[in-house]
Simulated scan of single mutants.
Amino acid sequence: MQVGCSEGLREFLCALYTPICTNYGLHLPPCRSLCKKARKGCEEAMAELELSWPSKFDCTRFPEHHELMCVVTLNQSSFVDATTPSSAAATHTTAPSPPPFHPHHHSAFTPCSSNADCVFEIIGGQCTTDSQCSAVTPNAVCSNSACSCVSPLTSYLNLACIHASGIGDMCYNDAQCRALNTFSFCRLSVAEVVGVCVCDPDQFIDSRGQCVPRLGGRCHKGDCPRQLGAASCQRGRDAVLKCFCRKEAVQRLGVCITPA
Rank of each mutant, 00 (worst) to 15 (best):
F244C: 08
S143V: 06
P54N: 12
M1S: 14
E192M: 05
S86C: 12
C171A: 11
S145L: 10
Q227R: 12
P138E: 00
L26K: 07
L215A: 09
P19D: 01
H106G: 15
R39G: 09
A47T: 03
N115P: 11
C224G: 07
L180P: 00
T73R: 10
R178F: 03
R39A: 12
C127K: 05
L153F: 13
N75M: 13
C42V: 07
S55F: 01
L34T: 03
V196A: 12
G236L: 02
Q176H: 03
T84Q: 14
V212F: 02
A231G: 10
M69T: 10
H220D: 12
Y24R: 14
H105F: 11
C133Y: 03
C142V: 13
T60Q: 08
S184Y: 05
T128Q: 04
H102C: 09
T22L: 07
L28R: 11
C142E: 01
H65M: 07
P98D: 06
N139Q: 07
P225T: 06
P30D: 00
D223H: 13
G4R: 05
S155F: 13
A231T: 00
R226A: 03
P152E: 05
I122S: 02
C127V: 11
F62Y: 14
G168F: 05
C35M: 06
L153S: 12
N23P: 00
E7T: 10
F79M: 14
P96G: 10
V72R: 14
T91N: 02
A146N: 13
T137A: 10
S78C: 12
Q176K: 06
T258W: 00
L49Y: 00
M69Y: 08
R252G: 11
C197S: 08
C133T: 11
L26A: 02
S148V: 15
N75R: 15
V3Y: 00
V212D: 04
P85G: 11
N181Q: 10
S114H: 02
E50P: 00
N144I: 03
R226L: 10
A108Q: 07
H66R: 10
E7V: 07
G4H: 03
A47P: 00
M69G: 15
L153C: 06
D130L: 07
R187N: 04
T60R: 14
Y172P: 12
S114G: 13
Q132Y: 01
E7R: 09
M170E: 00
K36L: 13
S134H: 05
S52T: 08
G4S: 03
V212N: 09
L49M: 05
G25C: 08
E67S: 14
L153W: 08
N139S: 13
N23R: 15
M46A: 13
R10C: 12
N144E: 09
L28Q: 04
R178Q: 15
S52Y: 02
G4I: 01
K247I: 09
A160T: 06
S33F: 01
Q2I: 11
V196H: 03
T137K: 11
L49C: 05
C219P: 11
T154L: 15
N115A: 14
D206W: 01
A146L: 09
T258F: 00
C142S: 04
T137N: 08
S33M: 04
N115L: 11
C256W: 02
C5M: 02
A230L: 04
S148M: 06
I167A: 14
K56F: 04
C199A: 04
S207P: 01
A179N: 07
N23T: 08
A164M: 06
E192I: 01
S232G: 12
V150N: 05
